[in-house]
C-alpha cells in the first residue's frame, strides 16, 4: 500500500476542516478540498517552501453517472523541482450553481484550461478574465456536452444544428489579441523576451 503524499498531511495541518479527505489512487495522491478555501489551498501549495507546486498540469472535471454524486473539478499539480505530483479535487453539488474561484492569478496556464472546463461542463470560474467557450463555437447554445445529462447527439435535430453552424461567422471566433503575441510581449518572462528579441524572427521593440 502506498503511503499518502506528505503534502496531504501538511495541508490538513494548515487548513484543518477545509481538507475534506485524502486518498491514494493508483499511486497518485488525491486531496479533496472544500470549495470555499480551494483558492487559498492552491495558492499555499504553489508558494509554500517544501510544496512549490509551480506547474499546473491540467484542470478538468468529472461528472459521474450516479445520481446525486457531486461533479468534481480536478486540478493536477506538479512541482517541477521536487518532481512530485498532487491532485486536488473540489466536489460540487450539481443541484446548485457550479462556481469555483479561478486560479488564473496563480498559474497563467489556467486561462484556456478553465475555459475548456466551462465550455464542456458549465463550471464558472470567478475572476477569470475571459471566460467564454473555447472548443465549441461561441454562439453554441445546446448546453455543456460532457455533462452526463447531455444527449450524445445534442439537443437539436441535425438540420437545426447545421443551420446554426452555417450561420456562425467563421472569422468571429478569433480576436486579434488571440492571434498575436505582440501585446503579451511585456508579460513574458525576461529570458523568453531576451530570446525573442534576437534573430531574424526577433520581436521588434
Amino acid at each position: 500500500m502506498t503511503v499518502s503524499s506528505p503534502s496531504a498531511a501538511a495541508l490538513t495541518a494548515a487548513f484543518g476542516a477545509a481538507i475534506e479527505r485524502h486518498l491514494v489512487s493508483c499511486g497518485d495522491p488525491i486531496v479533496y478540498v472544500a470549495n470555499a478555501r480551494a483558492h487559498d489551498v492552491l495558492a499555499w501549495l504553489q508558494t509554500t517552501p517544501g510544496q512549490e507546486f509551480n506547474y499546473l498540469t491540467d484542470i478538468t472535471a468529472v461528472d459521474y453517472r450516479d445520481p446525486g454524486r457531486p461533479l468534481e473539478v480536478v486540478y493536477q499539480l506538479r512541482s517541477l523541482d521536487r518532481k512530485a505530483d498532487l491532485r486536488i479535487k473540489i466536489a460540487l453539488d450539481t443541484g446548485r450553481p457550479l462556481v469555483v474561484d479561478s486560479v488564473y492569478d496563480l498559474w497563467r496556464g489556467a486561462d484556456w484550461l478553465e475555459r475548456e472546463v466551462f465550455d464542456m461542463f458549465g463550471v464558472s470560474f470567478t475572476g477569470h478574465p475571459d471566460l467564454r467557450r473555447i472548443l465549441m463555437w461561441e454562439t453554441y447554445n445546446e448546453g455543456f456536452p460532457l455533462r452526463k445529462e447531455f444527449p450524445l447527439r445534442g439537443h437539436y435535430n441535425r438540420a437545426e444544428q447545421t443551420r446554426q453552424a452555417l450561420a456562425a461567422n467563421p472569422e468571429a471566433h478569433y480576436s486579434v489579441e488571440e492571434l498575436t503575441i505582440a501585446e503579451a510581449f511585456q508579460e513574458l518572462p525576461p529570458d523568453v523576451r531576451e530570446r525573442l528579441s534576437h534573430g531574424e524572427r526577433g520581436f521588434v521593440k
Binding site: 463555437w137 444544428q161 447545421t162 446554426q164 453552424a165 452555417l166 456562425a168 467563421p170
Partner: peptide, 10 residues
C-alpha cells in the same frame, strides 16, 4: 465538425 461547417462552405 460543425465548427468547421461555415469554413468549408466559405
Amino acid at each position: 465538425p460543425f465548427k468547421l461547417a461555415p469554413v468549408i462552405r466559405r
